[in-house]
Every structure is written in structure tokens, then in C-alpha cells.
């Protein structure tokens, strides 16, 4: 049995619409009913792995419990962590909807590229994007690098690239971003904290 969440959502929708469902659950047709009991079963430690996380919205830092299906490796439930001293299991409307940020049929899983003056996105792979982005950064940097300012003082900076972002990164990623941007010589470095 190998069913990911998207298929599961589709199947439950189909069942709700009264269309005869294919017994993809190996005879467990009942599973499509998606009752509270069935949903509870899915959270069983035999089926899922539980990890802790922190809500990705405001800065209160509410604790989350995340249950991930051991077969599909997709999240099946995200809820407030009752042991967490700040939220004690509670979440606001956004926090309670956290799972839809990750498990969402509208979430793009592909890299998109639009050529200059292009009218459509094209799907590309990471190799293409990485190589092209690095080339563009290098070109902009090399063309706009100032070794000295108007007063003749050493400044060693890149004037042609701006970096914006991001308070949505983890601390360790913020450190990586800071190091990377400053190594490029960027001085126009800003993010959400400024707005």
C-alpha cells in the first residue's frame, strides 16, 4: 500500500462525491470514510514518526508536534505540543492550519525560469538554475565592484546586487546567508526586520 497524502485527499473527495472508489487500501474501504477513529489510527506510532517543531508564523514560538507517515514520508498531522511551556498545546487559526503550508496540492515542487521578455514560466532543474544564477551573480559583481569610493578609501564592495530576506530562515541559514552575501561584497542587504 503506497498512497501519498495528495492521493488520499483525492480519494476522500471522490468518496464524498459519491463516486465508487477503487479499493486502493487493499479492502480497507472503510478508510475512505475518514472518520475520527480512522484519522486517529493514522497517528498510531506504528504508522507515523513524531517530531517536534516550532510554528512558522509569528514570533511567539509555539511548539508543534508533527506526525509523518513512515511509508510516504509526508506529514499527516501537525498540532500544538501540550508539553510546550508557552502554548501548552494551543495554537491560533494559522498555527492550527500549519499542515497546509507543507502538504498542499498547490505547492510547486519544480524550479521555474522565465527568460528575458518571456511570457511563460519554463520548468528547469536545479543544475541549470544553480549554474545560471552563479554566472549572473559573477557578471553583476565583476561589473559593479568598487575597490575604492569617491574619496579614494578602500571599500571592496558590490554595488550592483541587492539582497532581500529573510526572517523565514532558521538561525543557521541566516548565518550562512550573512557569510555568503558579505563574501560577495554586498552592502545592500536588508530583510523583513526593516519593514
Amino acid at each position: 500500500m503506497n498512497i501519498n497524502r495528495r492521493d488520499f485527499v483525492k480519494l476522500t473527495t471522490a468518496a464524498a462525491a459519491g463516486i465508487a472508489a477503487v479499493p486502493a487500501f487493499g479492502g480497507l474501504g472503510k478508510a475512505f470514510a475518514n472518520t475520527a477513529e480512522e484519522r486517529a489510527k493514522q497517528l498510531s506510532p506504528k504508522w507515523t514518526q513524531q517530531t517536534t517543531s516550532v510554528c512558522a508564523f509569528c514570533s511567539v514560538g509555539c511548539g508543534l508536534l508533527v506526525n509523518t507517515d513512515l511509508e510516504t514520508k509526508r506529514a499527516v498531522n501537525v498540532e500544538g505540543n501540550p508539553d510546550h511551556p508557552i502554548n501548552e498545546g494551543a495554537l491560533c487559526a494559522k498555527g492550527a492550519a500549519s499542515i497546509q503550508m507543507t502538504e498542499n496540492p498547490k505547492r510547486p515542487g519544480k524550479f521555474l525560469y522565465r527568460a528575458p521578455y518571456g511570457t511563460e514560466w519554463e520548468e528547469k532543474d536545479w543544475e541549470f538554475c544553480k549554474k545560471r544564477i552563479a554566472k549572473l551573480i559573477k557578471k553583476s559583481r565583476d561589473e559593479s565592484f568598487e575597490k575604492k569610493n569617491a574619496k579614494g578609501q578602500v571599500v571592496n564592495r558590490t554595488m550592483g546586487i541587492a539582497s532581500l530576506g529573510s526572517a523565514a530562515l532558521d538561525n543557521e541559514e541566516c548565518y550562512a546567508m550573512h557569510s555568503f552575501m558579505r563574501s560577495l561584497g554586498l552592502v545592500y542587504v536588508e530583510h523583513q526586520a526593516r519593514i
Binding site: 514570533s59 526572517a167 532558521d170 541566516c174 546567508m177 536588508e190 523583513q192
Partner: peptide, 22 residues
């Protein structure tokens, strides 16, 4: 200060801003 993003405290501590380093 009730800050607005889950890690805007951290991203400020880590200086993703023109005027500071971590």
C-alpha cells in the same frame, strides 16, 4: 516587542541588515 515573524529575532541577531554584522 512582539515581533512579527517566527525568526525575525534570529535574522536580526544574525544581521541580514545593512548596518550590522552578527
Amino acid at each position: 516587542a512582539l515581533r512579527g515573524e517566527c525568526n525575525v529575532q534570529g535574522s536580526t541577531d544574525y544581521a541580514l541588515l545593512y548596518h550590522i554584522l552578527p
